[in-house]
Design a protein around this nucleic acid. Structure first.
Length: 259
DNA sequence: ATGACCAGTAACACTGGA
């Protein structure tokens, strides 16, 4: 089973790009972030016609996550637990019913800039809630994963110019520590389990010719429970997508599971 | 700061992104 995570930067603006990608690359499950659409306006029928089951958790204007799946989905839940006052649409979960059921969480972690400030406080608080959900997933002792746009550059080798990000919310020591605290509960960071080399990125800014200069960062990640990591066959980044027509500023990251 | 953006909402500028 091939699962991809992709921050599409607006479903309306990306409908053509995403549809071509689905037809060409054929993910069994696609976790989408930044759909920037309310559920009523999401082009559900369009993706259903392509053979996908569609579950969305959107809001007006910003954020928003979705799951497209060729396999049946069960027990869909929306919103990251831990703060009933949080109105931002950044988390969706479902169980994918394949050879072996897998709990899949799609996430869009807050950017947090400028730091310090209320937006950074929100990011760190959100990561605390993520850690709590991650602990609960581990306790199930079943194949499960959390994937999406983490808005965290885990290490210096995940940026072309690490010094340019030194004071940014994506790379501040507190952000990296919060990410590591989740990882160190016992998750496998899928891409790094397969490839230790520097120079692999999942985001290139639209500005200043970042793509042409390969001035990128790696911020889209797959975190796997041990039972899920046992099933991993491969993990890779589809960087080529950034050079296509009307690209998102992110590219898809892929996970292949023996399930 | 090696360089000049993009999407959505709302109306001819702003917010948010990273």
């Amino acid at each position: 089973m091939k699962i991809a995570t992709f921050n599409i930067n607006g479903v309306k603006a990306r409908i053509e790009t995403v549809s071509t990608w689905l037809s060409d690359s054929k993910p069994d499950v696609a976790l989408l972030q930044e759909i920037k659409s309310v559920d009523e306006n999401f082009p559900r029928q369009h993706f259903e016609d392509m053979g996908y089951t569609v579950e969305t958790h959107g809001q007006k204007g910003f954020n928003g996550v979705a799951i497209l799946s060729k396999l049946p989905l069960e027990d869909v839940t929306r919103g990251l637990p831990g703060d009933d006052s949080d109105e931002q649409a950044r988390w969706i979960e479902a169980t994918v019913i394949g050879e072996r059921p897998i709990r899949i969480c799609g996430l869009y972690l807050p950017n947090g800039n400028p730091a310090p400030g209320p937006k950074y406080d929100y990011k760190l608080a959100w990561m605390e809630r993520l850690k709590a959900r991650a602990e609960a997933l581990l306790e199930m002792e079943e194949p499960a994963l959390m994937a999406g746009d983490y808005n965290v550059i885990p290490q210096d080798e995940d940026a072309a110019r690490p010094d340019a990000w030194r004071t940014d919310a994506l790379a501040l020591p507190q952000s990296r520590e919060a990410f590591r605290r989740v990882l160190n509960l016992g998750f496998t960071e899928a891409f790094r389990a397969r490839n230790m080399a520097p120079g692999h990125y999942s985001f290139w800014d639209y500005q200043a010719g970042a793509w042409d200069r390969n001035d990128g960062i790696r911020i889209d990640h797959f975190l796997l429970t041990p039972q899920c990591a046992d099933l991993m066959q491969d993990c890779w980044i589809e960087g080529e997508m950034r050079g296509r027509e009307k690209p998102s500023d992110h590219v898809p990251v892929w996970l292949d599971l023996a399930a």
